[in-house]
């Protein structure tokens, strides 16, 4: 194959063990707890929680559970392009909705 990048990314050498993933899981459960806690405080907090903690949780799942951490740059680019596109769709849509 021609690209060095892709060549190098043929699965990074070491595989992570059980421990890493269990730690991540604990973090995810704790974050869920925080989210619930924030939503109990007030609506504003709940929305802030939605905007900050949820992407963080999703990021953890992507990065560790879905092995993005251990992959080469290509997959990261693929995910970022997708999320970027969705974000631009949102922005352009709201240029209509929010300014009517």
């Amino acid at each position: 194959m021609s690209e060095h990048v892709e060549q190098a990314s043929e699965h990074a050498a070491e595989h992570p063990g059980y421990g890493t993933f269990i730690k991540v899981w604990v973090a995810l459960v704790v974050l869920t707890g925080c989210l619930v806690g924030m939503s109990l405080v007030s609506q504003t907090y709940a929305v802030w929680g939605l905007l900050t903690l949820t992407p963080l949780k999703a990021g953890l799942v992507f990065y560790f559970f879905m092995h993005l951490r251990y992959e080469g740059p290509l997959f990261k680019v693929v995910v970022l392009v997708t999320l970027g596109t969705l974000l631009i769709f949102f922005a352009l849509l709201f240029s209509d909705v929010a300014f009517r």
């Binding site: 352009l92 240029s95 209509d96 909705v97 929010a98 300014f99 009517r100």
Partner: peptide
């Protein structure tokens, strides 16, 4: 995409 909707009542910014 929204250039198919110029007459449908979009915001002027859009």
């Amino acid at each position: 995409w929204a250039h198919h909707m110029f007459t449908s009542g979009l915001s002027s910014l859009s």
